[in-house]
């Protein structure tokens, strides 16, 4: 098991290097520089700015310099927010995004598992069709449509919840639901499928024949195998939650990392883009790895792969 984990950790290093290299050259080779859009900047100031941020050096030199700083965990200064470093921007934005993501994941798991498992226990009845129709709706209504609709109904018409913000607990309900809904829908479908397959197997019949209670059959015997598809979905889901947060943070004006990333891209803030991309990529890789390990724990056959 330890060997399996170490192998997976080592595999991520080349992937991260590819990501750094791709982003670095993609960003630098594109037309337009970070200070082009600024008005009232003389040729002299621009040269100084470029000098200050090491943009006059040859490209390969900038690249090796960046990698050198990166090894020490230094992501450089943000070009557009001159008073802050990228590390500070990420440090300020990420906890907010993480909190939002965790709430959304809770929403997705609670609703998704409850709907999916209960549907699988009564297949092809109303208790199956009703939640599955909702799940289809959850997949087909994107978060940038759902968010505004929720605001419209619950904040503007019914006036139960605030429109936007991120201070009071009541302000966090709508963003969490908006971000979590799609994943709840996928989890519902996946857990239904997985449970249906497991529940039709022989060892479940044996467990029932032994006279175990239905609750015990489901909880002790079926869940472990039936939730496999959900576990493997959590890796891509984490990536999706991150990019989904760009939209949700924009709609609800939440000061999270997603908004900084989109702003950074629009402003051509090279270091901020690089920093956020790297940070996201590392997170996603760690999450995929955790999912692989979790799967290996649940299903010993996968340890060999």
């Amino acid at each position: 098991m330890a060997k399996f984990i170490i192998g997976r950790v080592l595999e991520t290093i080349p992937v991260l290097l590819i990501i750094v290299t791709m982003t670095f050259f993609l960003v630098r080779l594109a037309p337009g520089g970070p200070f082009d859009a600024e008005r009232n900047v003389t040729e002299e100031t621009r040269r100084q700015l470029n000098e200050q941020y090491n943009l006059n050096a040859p490209l390969w030199r900038q690249y090796t310099d960046y990698l050198g700083h990166l090894i020490h965990g230094d992501l450089g200064p943000s070009f557009k927010n001159s008073s802050r470093t990228v590390n500070e921007v990420i440090g300020a934005g990420f906890p907010v995004s993480l909190e939002l993501g965790l709430y959304a994941l809770c929403v997705a798991l609670t609703i998704g598992l409850a709907a999916g498992i209960s549907a699988a226990l009564r297949p092809n009845t109303v208790r199956d069709y009703a939640p599955m129709t909702f799940a289809m709706a959850g997949i087909c209504i994107p978060n940038f449509v759902l968010g505004p609709l929720l605001v419209l109904v619950f904040a503007l018409w019914l006036e139960w919840l605030p429109v936007s913000g991120w201070d009071r607990p009541s302000e966090k309900i709508l963003p969490a639901i908006t971000l979590g809904a799609t994943y709840a829908a996928y989890i519902a479908r996946l857990s239904r499928g997985g449970m249906l397959e497991i529940l039709s197997q022989d060892f479940i019949r044996t467990a029932r024949a032994k006279g175990l209670s239905e609750a015990r059959v489901v909880l002790r015997h079926a869940l472990r195998g039936g939730l496999q598809p959900v576990v493997s979905f959590l890796g891509p889901a984490a990536a999706g939650l991150l990019s989904g947060s760009f939209v949700v943070e924009t709609i609800f004006q939440i000061p999270g990392l997603g908004r900084y990333f989109v702003q950074g891209a629009f402003n051509r803030d090279y270091t901020l883009i690089m920093g956020t991309v790297l940070f996201y990529a590392t997170l996603i890789l760690i999450f995929n790895m955790a999912v692989d390990v979790a799967q290996a724990c649940l299903d010993p056959r996968q340890r060999r792969a």
């Binding site: 991520t12 992937v15 590819i18 990501i19 791709m22 982003t23 993609l26 990536a239 991150l242 990019s243 760009f246 990333f261 989109v262 891209a265 956020t276 991309v277 996201y280 990529a281 996603i284 890789l285 995929n288």
Partner: peptide, 9 residues
């Protein structure tokens, strides 16, 4: 494993 949405952006 790459965060593609981000690259497209």
């Amino acid at each position: 494993a790459l965060p593609f949405t981000i690259f497209v952006i």
